[in-house]
Write a protein that binds this DNA or RNA. Structure first.
Length: 115
DNA sequence: ATTCTGACAGCAA
DNA sequence: TTTGCTGCCAGAA
């Protein structure tokens, strides 16, 4: 195998696995994913991983990951600066001023839901 | 091996 | 409340 890229053993791969488990219509945060993976202080690296998720052949719903305030901090990393918001709106997640409305209600915490 | 970076988060003013 | 600074971690150069 070859690939030295994104295996489930790698941190990046683990980030992708968790991200894929985020339910349609829900969102979570970089920090929540980091804590679920056991490295609670590597939230920044989670963002780094999602940045590279485009290279993967599989679909990774990176748009469902926002920062702890519900802010679409990664929207500039999607093709168009409005792509991330549109993807969320398509799932019934309302976004206003780059922030997820009803963030608390839409929030999905892997540490609590998964197990 | 060493240095730099960032789609974060927490805390102090 | 908003702004700014600091710590942290895994990768990339």
């Amino acid at each position: 195998m070859a690939g030295k890229h994104q295996n489930k053993n790698d941190f990046f791969g683990q980030v992708y696995e968790v991200t894929k488990l985020i339910p349609w219509g829900s969102v979570t945060s970089y920090g929540a994913i980091a804590r679920y993976l056991g490295t609670g202080k590597s939230a920044r690296t989670v963002g780094w991983a999602l940045n590279a998720s485009h290279s993967g052949g599989e679909f990774v719903p990176a748009h469902r990951v926002v920062n702890r305030n519900g802010l679409l901090s990664g929207k500039l990393h999607f093709g168009n600066s409005t792509t991330m918001q549109q993807l969320l709106e398509n799932e019934g997640i309302h976004v206003e001023d780059d922030r997820v409305v009803d963030f608390i209600e839409k929030f999905w915490d892997p540490s609590l839901e998964l197990r």
